[in-house]
Computed example of a mutant assay.
Amino acid sequence: MSENISIKTLNGYGTTLAAVINFPEGFDASRTYPAIVVSHPGGGVKEQAAGLYAGKLAEHGFVTVAYDASFQGASTGEPRQLENPHIRTEDVSAVVDYLTTLGYVDSDRIGAMGICAGAGYTANAAINDPRIKAVGTVSLVNIGQMFRNGWTNDVADADAAPLLAMGAEARTTDVQDKDNPFPLAPMREEDAPNEELRQAWEYYHTPRCEHPNAPGFMTARSLSQIITYDAFHKAEAFLTQPLLVIAGSEAGSRWMSDDLFARAASKDKSLHVVEGSNHMELYDGEREVAEAVSKLAPFFADKL
C-alpha cells in the first residue's frame, strides 16, 4: 500500500517535495513502525531506483518514503533541474521532519538510505542530523568527488577548475534567460566512455527505466556548488550511526564507497560487495537489487 504525499520543506527556498509513502503489509495506524527515507540518484526521480528500494523495504515491515528532490521531478522550485548538493542534503532531513509528525512512526527509529548521489546526500544528512539512526548506501557517489576527480578517481582536484569556470559562466548567462543544461549521465549512447556508463544512458533514456520527469541533466550553474562539495565532510567526527555500505565489485565508483567506509567515525559499520555487479546494475538488476535488499532489510531491522 502506498500514497502520494507532499512535504513542505523549511530549507529557505520554499520548496515542496512530491513523495510516495509506502506501508508494510497489514499496516495498522494505531501501532508505531520504524521508517526509512530513500533518496534517488542525481538525475533520477522517485519512480525509478529509489521507489524500487522503498517498495521492497516496505515489504520487510518499514514505513518508507521515496521523494523527488527540490527543483526536480514533481517537486516544486525554480530553476528546474537545479542540483544544489546542500539543498539535496537538506531534503533528506526535511523528510525526517515530516516523519516525526506521523503518529504511526517511531521518531527514535528513523533510518535513511540512498542510491548513487542520493547515498552521498544521505551520508551528509546523517553527519548533520542525529535523528537519522542508521545509514545505508548503494552504489554510493560523493557528487563533489565525482565531478572533481572523475568516475574512477584519476583527476586531480585542481584540474576541475574549468568546471568551476563553466558553472560561473552559466550563472552569468542564466540571468540573461539562457538555457544551460549539463549532463548527469550520457545523453547519447555514443557519448558513453565505457559499458558501465553506457548503461547509465540506457537506464535514463530507454524503456529500461526512463521517466518523463527525469531528463538526465542538471543546470550548469549547479557546478558552482558541486565542485567544492564533500558529502563526507566531518564524517570522521560526526558520522557515528550504524552504517552499511553496498557496492558492486565491478563499479568504477567503488572507490567512493571505500572512502566513506574508511572515513566514517561509526564503530558499527560494514561493507558488502555484490560480486559481478557494476554501478548501474544495483539500480534495477533483479539479482543485484535482491542481494542488496537482503542485506539492507536485516540491517535496518537490527539497528532501528
Rank of each mutant, 00 (worst) to 15 (best):
273 V>I: 15
188 R>W: 04
149 N>W: 02
285 G>F: 13
214 A>C: 09
170 A>Q: 03
303 K>Q: 12
208 R>V: 15
137 T>A: 09
157 D>G: 02
122 T>M: 08
42 G>P: 05
59 E>R: 13
42 G>R: 02
141 V>Y: 02
294 S>W: 04
51 G>H: 03
73 G>T: 07
93 S>A: 07
284 D>L: 12
155 V>R: 13
290 A>K: 14
78 E>P: 02
238 F>E: 05
88 R>M: 11
247 A>I: 12
2 S>E: 11
2 S>V: 10
1 M>Y: 08
65 V>M: 12
82 L>H: 04
58 A>K: 06
131 R>N: 05
1 M>L: 09
63 V>C: 06
128 N>A: 13
56 K>G: 00
219 T>Y: 00
143 I>T: 11
87 I>G: 01
69 A>I: 01
145 Q>E: 11
4 N>W: 03
193 P>C: 11
263 R>C: 06
184 L>Y: 02
232 F>Q: 04
279 H>N: 09
6 S>R: 12
260 L>W: 00
76 T>E: 11
105 V>K: 00
14 G>S: 05
181 P>Q: 09
70 S>E: 08
299 F>C: 11
90 E>C: 06
274 V>F: 09
202 E>V: 15
114 G>T: 03
143 I>G: 01
137 T>N: 07
34 P>E: 03
170 A>P: 03
293 V>D: 04
3 E>W: 07
250 E>N: 13
58 A>V: 11
45 V>S: 11
93 S>K: 01
64 T>M: 10
185 A>V: 15
304 L>E: 01
110 I>K: 02
283 Y>P: 00
44 G>A: 14
64 T>P: 02
218 M>N: 04
166 M>N: 05
191 D>N: 13
171 R>V: 15
70 S>N: 13
58 A>I: 10
162 P>N: 11
12 G>V: 14
96 V>S: 03
298 P>D: 14
217 F>N: 03
178 K>Q: 08
148 R>H: 07
292 A>Y: 06
245 V>Y: 05
240 T>V: 15
167 G>Q: 05
176 Q>V: 06
215 P>E: 03
212 P>W: 10
50 A>Y: 05
